[in-house]
């Protein structure tokens, strides 16, 4: 149990998707103009990450890994399908995203219209595929750990986008040099936030 909490906290603060790996920057920069939409997108990301990472964990461990097919028959012990992992992961992610898109369209049309093009882009939100790839690289011991990692990464992403959106709402009232307005200043603020988040790096868990 303690282990799960560790993985969760680690992925929220220390290995934060945005500040440590720059994953999911595209939608992060484009949707962070108001707090309301960015909270919606952040929740969608938590949800999708929380589902896809465990599903991909199962696929990785029972189908793709070397020897993973042994549960079907011992003859398959040396089959290694791991080169297929990209395409399998992305297929799972894309179908989950399409599902979420349909659900949101049905139950919250307002959120659907404000997220606009960025809902389908969750499928290409690098943090989602990145979550699955890091899960593969770090070799978590069981599905609970993988889920904790997925949810933690989602929460970390949510925190980052909610934070930048709040700052951007306030920055409207400041006198930013004209060429820096909009995108430029957002990059620089994200950099500064990243430096702040680096202070978590020293924590030993």
């Amino acid at each position: 149990m303690e282990n799960l909490v560790n993985i969760f906290v680690r992925s929220v603060f220390i290995d934060n998707m945005i500040f440590a790996y720059f994953l999911g920057m595209c939608s992060y920069l484009a949707v962070s103009k108001t707090v309301k939409t960015s909270v919606g997108l952040g929740l969608a990301v938590i949800f999708v990450l929380g589902i896809t990472v465990p599903i991909n964990y199962l696929i990785e461990n029972y189908i793709l890994k070397e020897g993973a097919l042994a549960w079907i028959s011992p003859n398959l012990l040396d089959v290694d399908l791991s080169f297929l992992s990209f395409i399998m992961f992305i297929a799972v992610i894309a179908s989950m995203v399409q599902l979420v898109e349909m659900i949101i369209e049905k139950f919250s049309p307002a959120l659907y219209s404000s997220l606009g093009i960025f809902l389908p882009l969750i499928a290409v939100n690098c943090s989602i595929l990145g979550g699955s790839l890091f899960m593969q690289e770090r070799d978590y011991a069981n599905i609970a750990e993988a889920t904790a990692f997925g949810l933690g990464s989602g929460v970390g992403w949510f925190l980052a986008i909610a934070g930048i959106a709040a700052i951007r709402e306030k920055i409207k009232y400041s006198n930013v040099p004209a060429p820096l307005r909009g995108l430029g200043i957002t990059f620089i603020i994200t950099g500064l936030m990243g430096i702040a988040f680096m202070s978590f790096m020293g924590i030993q868990l």
Binding site: F19, F22, P179, L183, G184, I185, F187, T190, G191, G194
Partner: peptide
């Protein structure tokens, strides 16, 4: 370290937009 990549891109945007005024955003 990672944060400086963001700041470098921010500066590139700054340079590009001050040379090319039509790209400037309203806010």
């Amino acid at each position: 370290l990672p944060p400086m990549a963001l700041i470098t891109v921010g500066i590139i945007i700054w340079v590009q937009r001050s040379r090319n005024k039509e790209l400037i955003e309203s806010n």
